[in-house]
Amino acid sequence: MTAELHTLTGAYALHALDPDEQAEFERHLAACPACAQEVRELSATAARLGSALTLVPPDGFKESVLRRIDSVRQEPPRTSAGPAAAGASRRGRTVSNWALAACLAAVAALGATTVWQHLEARDARQDARQAQQATDQVADVLAAPDARTRSARLADGASGTVVVSEERDKAVFVAASMARPPSGKVYQLWFDDDGTMRPAGLMDPGRTAQTVLMDGAVGDASGMGVTVEPAGGSRHPTSQPVALLPLPA
């Protein structure tokens, strides 16, 4: 089975594993520096590809604007004043003003589209950078030479594993087969500092298997826990823990 796990680095980097495979592979990463390095490299490549995202205006947008501008006649040359000439001049000014307004509208629309493209691309790049940073941090803890693990069976057939690197002063929690929290609730992670629970981040309520880099330094914590809290989390636990694990020595 270990040999097969070595072949899953690409699928893991692209989030193509099912929840059980993902949890098993992430446990494998804690003991396989070669796979952890390959995952970092593949994830970086995927993030760079994602950051290359570009967006285009709706189909036919530019052609439609150009057709409307081309259909407007150029303003005739101004001549000496007179009733007919004055009327033509007024009509010319009306047409000219409409053409100017159309051009300005086109420029504004194209400018807005360009800004929209820029913002969308910037957000995509930012999301990719954040995802890459989180992936790198998780992989760094899992592959740390001093990484230690502690696993436990949780309620309803779920399982949890905490991986701690004293050198990095960080911890990662790996969950599998977790029941979804009630609507409007979220699983919150905690460090146990001699009986005082310190917030350590939130889990994704839409996923039953996930790997979470716990917020903050491990410090002097002797354990960690999981509780069900209102969306957005709490400063202190408001429910009985669904999981309590001592941190590996």
Rank of each mutant, 00 (worst) to 15 (best):
T196D: 13
D169H: 05
A101I: 05
P181G: 14
G60I: 01
R153I: 09
T113M: 09
T161M: 04
D193E: 15
V95I: 03
S43A: 11
V226G: 09
G225T: 07
G111I: 08
E4Y: 03
H236W: 13
A13C: 11
R68P: 10
A221Q: 06
N97T: 07
T9L: 04
K185T: 12
A134V: 13
G195T: 10
T196P: 12
E38I: 08
T211W: 01
D215L: 14
P199E: 01
L5G: 00
T94E: 15
R207C: 04
V162Q: 01
H6A: 05
W98T: 05
V226K: 02
E167K: 10
T114Y: 00
A217Y: 08
R235T: 12
G223D: 11
G233M: 09
R150S: 12
P246T: 10
S151R: 08
A143Q: 01
A217D: 07
D194Q: 15
I69E: 07
P182Q: 05
A34H: 05
M197V: 06
S64H: 08
P199Y: 00
L245M: 03
P19F: 04
T45M: 06
T238S: 06
A102I: 11
T113Q: 05
V141S: 02
A44I: 12
A101V: 10
Q132S: 10
V163A: 06
Q126E: 13
L245H: 07
A143H: 02
L100P: 11
Q117C: 07
D146Y: 00
D59G: 05
Q132N: 14
D146F: 02
A217F: 03
P205E: 14
P199Q: 02
H6S: 09
L244K: 13
H236G: 09
T196G: 14
T227V: 04
L142Q: 02
A134R: 15
A147T: 00
R168S: 10
A99N: 09
A124M: 10
P57S: 12
E21W: 09
G216D: 08
D194V: 10
S183K: 08
A131F: 07
V218N: 05
R93H: 02
M178C: 13
P246M: 13
Y12D: 06
A124S: 12
A88N: 05
S80A: 15
P248V: 01
E24M: 09
P19V: 01
G225N: 04
A179W: 07
D20N: 12
S71T: 13
L110S: 12
D140A: 10
S151Y: 06
R40N: 09
V39Y: 08
V95C: 01
Q210M: 14
R180Y: 15
S51T: 10
R40H: 07
A147F: 03
D220G: 12
R150T: 07
Q37P: 06
V226Q: 02
R235Y: 11
Q132D: 13
L154Q: 03
A179E: 09
A86F: 14
L42A: 13
E4V: 06
L154N: 00
T79Y: 05
Q132M: 15
G232Q: 04
F173E: 07
L55M: 12
V138E: 11
P58S: 01
S43M: 05
T114I: 09
T208E: 14
A147K: 05
P241M: 09
G206K: 14
T227N: 04
L213Q: 01
D70S: 03
L100S: 15
A171L: 07
A231W: 04
G87A: 12
A109P: 02
A200L: 10
S80H: 14
S71Q: 15
R168E: 11
G60Y: 00
F61Y: 04
